[in-house]
Design a binder for these strands. Structure first.
Lengths: 306, 306
DNA sequence: TTTTGGATTTTAAATCATGAAAAGCCAAAA
DNA sequence: TTTTGGCTTTTCATGATTTAAAATCCAAAA
């Protein structure tokens, strides 16, 4: 996943679209259109298309470009599913080690380079990201300090209380605007989860669907600062949830509540929806969580949900 | 300010402490204590102390270390004041140019290197910071995109509306705890501004005192996520406010309101304080602002306050 | 016209060497 | 003991160079 990162990212996204049926079988794939859509040049697009041709997902006709095959080979779909699972990138590794207390509070870049055998630039990249997400900071001189904010059980409650302040408020913003297309899409996803996916879908998907629901709703407020704040705490939450087991019963309850909120919004009843959202978050704070901690067996901490 | 950045930062802080009277004249300065306080080694501390000896702020006694002089030379105090003014670092330059529409929406690092004659690493640093503060992002391939979020007049209102959601809520958190020392300190600062400083202090100080007030109060909530969110929007606000003229009449009004909120808190009346805070922010949103825009003369935008 | 396909140019990531800055160590002085 | 002062080691920023990746250009085909 190091070489040709962009091209393989694109080919994955495209394959996903094809499998999901968003792109018709047999249709023509315009390289330029793809390039515009992703905001990149045609070069990585071409590499992506070539890769998909090798997998027999696309068929190439000289001087006419690529066309979706009439049938997608099972092998390609399998590869896609696998891709989703092996998400344990280095950032997650670092975060997990910090959460498990396997890293000292203060480290030098050198220390990390040796421990993980990473390059200087790579270490820098990860630490910048950790800084951005709020759990690391540069010391004044040499070295870095990891912050406990993302690892205490209290942090979980605090994140929920913060969300209780912003999510219901966002629905009452004067600039709040209903978008039925968004609501329908979310309803589709939530119903889909209830009907069939919960038992077999990977835990990660379930959780990110939950986060997506909340982020899409807060977007409707029309105030980007609400969204930014929610995304920020969600990223921190995800750090902690990494490696946790999903409690699927609790998830069902959760989806039901999501659907209730959607119903209220569909009827234009934002005030009740806001109230319901508050209850929903408050419930998540109090009730048993759909996650069980595996990386902190000693702590009797109840974790978070969507 | 490039070479020995750390040492000169330390010597400035120390000098500030001495001038402010936090460190007694004639007292001994322990290098190790300073190093521990700042989380650095003794090496940069030593450089800082040497520099202050040259300025006759400190006196060195062989094998006994440094002692604060009985009298601080005026020249040293003058140098300190000057330091505070020349804050127009490259980050501000970049931000200002973006706000003034003097940069294209999409740029390559190379473009910035040439335009400003910056090094690769420096450009990278600035862009990472801009990303962290929310007004720039990497494109998927090569290049960066600047986001309009920090430059539209609407963004100002949106920030205020966001603050109206979090600041009053923070006061009602179950973990909220009054800290009279903090309240006293803030009262002192606000009263000081009212009494004398407003007419002569640099605009930047006045504004950062305002931001400090709000950040110290939100800290009392005991929930770090409220603080992080406020700091984030405040940083963005500061970008826009850079170069703006301060309306000092409006500032007086503001300090008065701050003092009212402090009074309520001192009496332990958090509910009313929360309500008052909401009004305060709402007023700032509606009323004429203490800032007048100089970099966007064409826009009839009313700007922000503390 | 639009789109592809190939070639060229540009960009920025990776690697490496160097030197300044910070950290760490230890003996001597208080 | 604690602190200083001198010294050594480590860390990391910087700049040059190489190289892979992405953007751009242009002619040919549909």
């Amino acid at each position: 996943m190091r070489a040709n990162a962009l091209a393989s990212k694109i080919s994955n996204r495209l394959l996903q679209d094809i499998v999901a049926g968003n792109v018709a079988l047999g249709s023509h794939i315009s390289a330029q259109q793809l390039a515009d859509r992703y905001g990149v040049s045609r070069t990585p697009i071409r590499e992506a298309l070539e890769a998909l041709e090798v997998q027999s997902v696309l068929i190439r006709r000289p001087n006419r470009g690529y066309f979706v095959a009439d049938e997608i080979p099972a092998s390609a779909q399998a590869a896609l599913a696998q891709e989703g699972e092996s998400e344990a990138d280095d950032y997650q590794v670092l975060a997990a080690d910090w959460l498990r207390n396997e890293l000292p509070e203060e480290v030098t870049e050198q220390f990390l380079r040796q421990k993980y055998n990473w390059t200087k630039a790579h270490v820098g990249e990860l630490l910048v990201r950790a800084t951005r997400e709020g759990w690391a900071e540069r010391k004044e001189g040499y070295g870095w300090r990891f912050l406990p904010v993302a690892k205490t059980p209290e942090a979980f409650d605090e994140i929920y209380r913060f969300r209780m302040a912003i999510e219901p408020a966002a629905m009452l913003e004067p600039s709040f605007e209903l978008n039925h297309k968004v609501l329908e899409e979310q309803r589709r996803i939530q119903e889909n989860m209830l009907e069939m996916e919960i038992s077999k879908a990977p835990g990660e998907t379930l959780l990110s669907n939950g986060a997506l629901f909340h982020e899409e709703l807060i977007k409707l407020s029309g105030n980007p600062f609400f969204l930014m704040a929610l995304q920020r705490v969600n990223r921190m939450r995800r750090l902690m949830e990494y490696r946790a087991e999903v409690n699927r019963d609790r998830l069902i309850e959760q989806c039901t509540e999501h659907l209730e909120i959607l119903s209220l919004l569909e009827r234009g009843n934002t005030v009740d929806a806001s109230f319901r959202m508050r209850q929903h978050l408050s419930g998540a704070l109090k009730r048993k969580s759909p996650l069980a901690w595996t990386w902190a067996a000693d702590s009797h901490l109840t974790a978070a949900e969507d």
